[in-house]
């Protein structure tokens, strides 16, 4: 396990999360220059199949901690394993996807490891042998280049969709090292009782297409045409703070400074004026379409395609058009 570059594979109920493997792409971007292979660390219950998946995307070695007490993510037992394994291996860097779990894990374990954490990286490069991590700060208004000052491994989480998913089919196989859990159930202070999931909704986290509504949708029922378009496109429904604060749609849909930061391939802003706080959450989207009655709305400064018009006419027409073209 002499690799200098490690990845942590984020999983939920034994399945790698959709963005988990993006960490491998980020790792590959630095491993070659450092002359290192990549070791993956998997912690959980029912996660042994993830080792083969890791080899398939080009990882060289895998360390697995499999234990019933690790079925649900809880920071204490996960961090105990993480700090023990990485405290012994002491690689240069560990990279994971920037999920809620990974953020907690890296923060908590960094205190034991006495090393630094950099979250939400959008770029990684090697300069003079050091890893330089680029991340947005001040809600994406500024960028920051950060480096480790002392301690290793540096723990880096990469923002969802900032790196592409790695090519699979590497056909590798390698050593799988099994390690034991560190803490017993009686040493843990937290119990996970349940998950409450919104049925049938695509989450804006990691969505490739987001159809988002603001003040212009005029009420809870105004989101219906947006939902219909999102459904045809296989996308998620987002919202501005104005729509959430008005009680038209739950907070889980909010995009912006006090909501989710998203970076889809396509962001369709319907009836959203585009306040700076909203822009902070969506400005890095690949293609932005804005539909608004007001030609002077600031959202048009970000948009690649703009439609000045009534969203209640344009959005249903767009839904119908895509339904025809996509054969749905």
């Amino acid at each position: 396990m002499a690799n200098q570059v490690w990845v942590y594979i984020d999983q939920f109920k034994g399945q790698a999360t959709p963005s988990a493997w993006e960490a491998v792409s980020a790792a590959k971007s630095v491993a070659e220059q450092l002359g290192s292979g990549i070791t993956a660390l998997v912690i959980g219950s029912g996660v042994e199949s993830l080792a083969q998946q890791a080899f398939d995307v080009g990882v060289d070695e895998v360390v697995v901690c499999e234990d019933g007490s690790l079925a649900d993510f809880r920071v204490e037992p996960y961090a105990a394993v993480f700090a023990k394994v990485l405290g012994e291996a002491r690689p240069k860097v560990v990279i994971g996807t920037a999920s809620t779990r990974v953020r907690d894990l890296f923060a908590y374990a960094s205190i034991d490891l006495e090393s630094g954490v950099i979250v939400d990286a959008t770029g990684l490069e090697i300069k003079d042998g050091a890893i330089v991590v680029t991340r947005p700060v001040y809600a994406g208004k500024l960028l920051c280049n950060e480096v480790a000052k002392k301690g290793q491994p540096l723990l880096v989480s990469v923002r969802v969709r900032a790196f592409p998913p790695p090519q699979s089919g590497a056909g590798k196989s390698g050593s799988v090292t099994k390690v034991s859990a560190v803490l017993g159930e009686d040493q843990l202070t937290t119990k996970v009782l349940d998950y409450v999931v919104e049925e049938g909704e695509v989450s804006v986290d990691g969505a490739a297409i987001i159809v988002s509504g603001g003040r212009g949708v005029n009420g809870p029922e105004g989101f219906e045409p947006l939902r219909a378009l999102a459904k045809v496109l296989g996308g998620a429904v987002g919202a501005s703070r104005a729509a959430v604060d008005a009680g038209w749609i739950p907070y889980s849909h909010q995009v912006g400074q006090t909501g989710k930061v998203v970076s889809p391939d396509l962001y369709i802003a319907c009836g959203i004026s585009g306040a700076v706080q909203h822009q902070a959450g969506m400005r890095t989207s690949k293609v932005i379409v804005a539909i608004n009655k007001d030609k002077d709305a600031p959202i048009f400064n970000l948009a690649k395609y703009g439609v000045v018009g009534d969203l209640f006419e344009i959005v249903p027409a767009l839904t119908e058009e895509f339904r025809k073209r996509l054969g749905k």
Partner: peptide, 23 residues
């Protein structure tokens, strides 16, 4: 005491986007 340093901070380079109106 910091484990992490941030030697460079700079404005987010903005893609020059000029909206194409669809009419």
């Amino acid at each position: 005491g910091a484990f992490v340093a941030w030697p460079e901070i700079y404005p987010m380079p903005l893609k020059e986007t000029k909206v194409e109106w669809i009419e």
